[in-house]
Write a protein that binds this DNA or RNA. Structure first.
Lengths: 104, 104
DNA sequence: TGTATGTGCAACTGGTTGGTTTCTCAAAAT
DNA sequence: ATTTTGAGAAACCAACCAGTTGCACATACA
């Protein structure tokens, strides 16, 4: 059972859930109302997201509020870092090229 | 057949391939040498990556060099943008809190 | 021309995944 | 005390996925 962030955000429904609870913590029922699938299906997604620590629970009576662990999202950002260096250097190269053209 | 960037980067082998050819364009055989799986398996990954335009081919005789489409990687960065706003505002809140404590 | 090499494609396979339905359990409400 | 409500867990299923082996085809080389 592979369970990492990249696999977690691969599913569009899960990405939608993440975006939803990023705004404010919500219960499974409230989340499920935004989708066509059943609450149980949403619950499964929440379980996966919880397992890779992208979200956390907050019990309040019999209700459970799910909240985004924004810190964990930074791990994706961290992975992107290596490529950001490339696209920034490409941009710099283009910049230098444009400067050279202007000089002529 | 769902084929988007997020599903493409969900697989660890594909992420490794991306990181590999980010440095320099490579042929399928050369890429496959870096992994335990067969060339055909790598070829399948390359097909998926090509389909969602994360990489592009460059034919050279009978060899095919695969190259990263760095621009496409920015789409992940773009999706992260909405969360970056959140974690930056959280940081700002913490900053203000620390400033308030110091004043006391 | 015949052979070796680089590559993609098709068929098959076991494991995973996303979904459903059914069940259980605890907390609220009546 | 009984019923309603919110939620997770288990069993099941169709679809998908990552890998394999085998094959086809083009290019390079002898």
């Amino acid at each position: 059972m592979r369970r990492d962030i990249f696999q977690a955000i691969a599913d569009p429904t899960r990405r939608a859930i993440i975006a939803l609870i990023a705004v404010q913590a919500m219960t499974p029922n409230a989340i499920a109302e935004h989708f066509d699938s059943t609450r149980q299906a949403v619950s499964k997604h929440l379980k996966i997201l919880t397992e890779c620590e992208l979200i956390k629970q907050e019990h309040q009576g019999r209700e459970i509020y799910y909240q985004l662990e924004i810190e964990k999202m930074k791990e994706i950002d961290k992975w992107l870092e290596q490529f950001r260096q490339i696209w920034e250097s490409r941009f710099q190269q283009l910049d230098q090229l444009l400067a050279t053209i202007q000089k002529k």
